[in-house]
Design a protein around this nucleic acid. Structure first.
Length: 151
DNA sequence: GCCAACGTTGGC
DNA sequence: GCCAACGTTGGC
């Protein structure tokens, strides 16, 4: 099993939204590197759900992959902000996995606290200028975050 | 294939 | 709202 971190702006889609829906397709990713990481994901992989562009930013909870990468439906939808005119059903460009809610942490683990954790010093999230919205996390990093979450 | 211009992300 | 750091686009 592998571990990942996925970012979302809580104003758009938060851990509470995922809890309410139970599961959802992680659509709208329009970055090739992030897409490629989703294609590497497998059912059962663990996902740290990160809240970005909010105060404070941080890891809000835990999700899991429940469907392998499949074409992102929003690329074909002319009314979607994620519509991509270059994509066709025969030759889709963008993919997404489905993720399910596992749990919301008792407290949000703020970015600042992650920066302070020795075990996380090499985390992709903390690298200078890292804007990747989908990124791999090592087992050690994952365990360290879970420890900070208190469970 | 280079690279300047432009757009986006996301912390601050 | 600012702006650094990137990714993408398109002219050449």
């Amino acid at each position: 099993m592998r571990h990942w971190l996925m970012k979302s702006e809580p104003d758009a889609f938060s851990i509470d939204d995922l809890k309410r829906l139970k599961k959802d397709a992680w659509s709208g990713v329009r970055n090739y590197q992030a897409r490629n990481f989703m294609k590497e994901m497998a059912v059962g992989d663990a996902v740290l759900f990160y809240h970005s562009s909010c105060e404070p930013p941080g890891v809000a909870g835990l999700a899991k992959v429940v469907a392998d990468a499949h074409p992102d439906a929003t690329q074909f939808d002319r009314r979607s902000p994620y519509y991509d005119p270059k994509a066709t059903k025969a030759k889709p460009i963008w993919a997404c996995v489905d993720v399910a809610f596992v749990r919301k942490f008792g407290r949000l683990i703020p970015l600042e606290e992650l920066r302070g954790a020795k075990a996380l010093k090499d985390m992709v999230l903390l690298r200078r200028g890292s804007r990747l919205s989908v990124q791999p996390v090592t087992k050690e990093e994952f365990d360290a975050v879970m420890k900070l979450a208190g469970k």
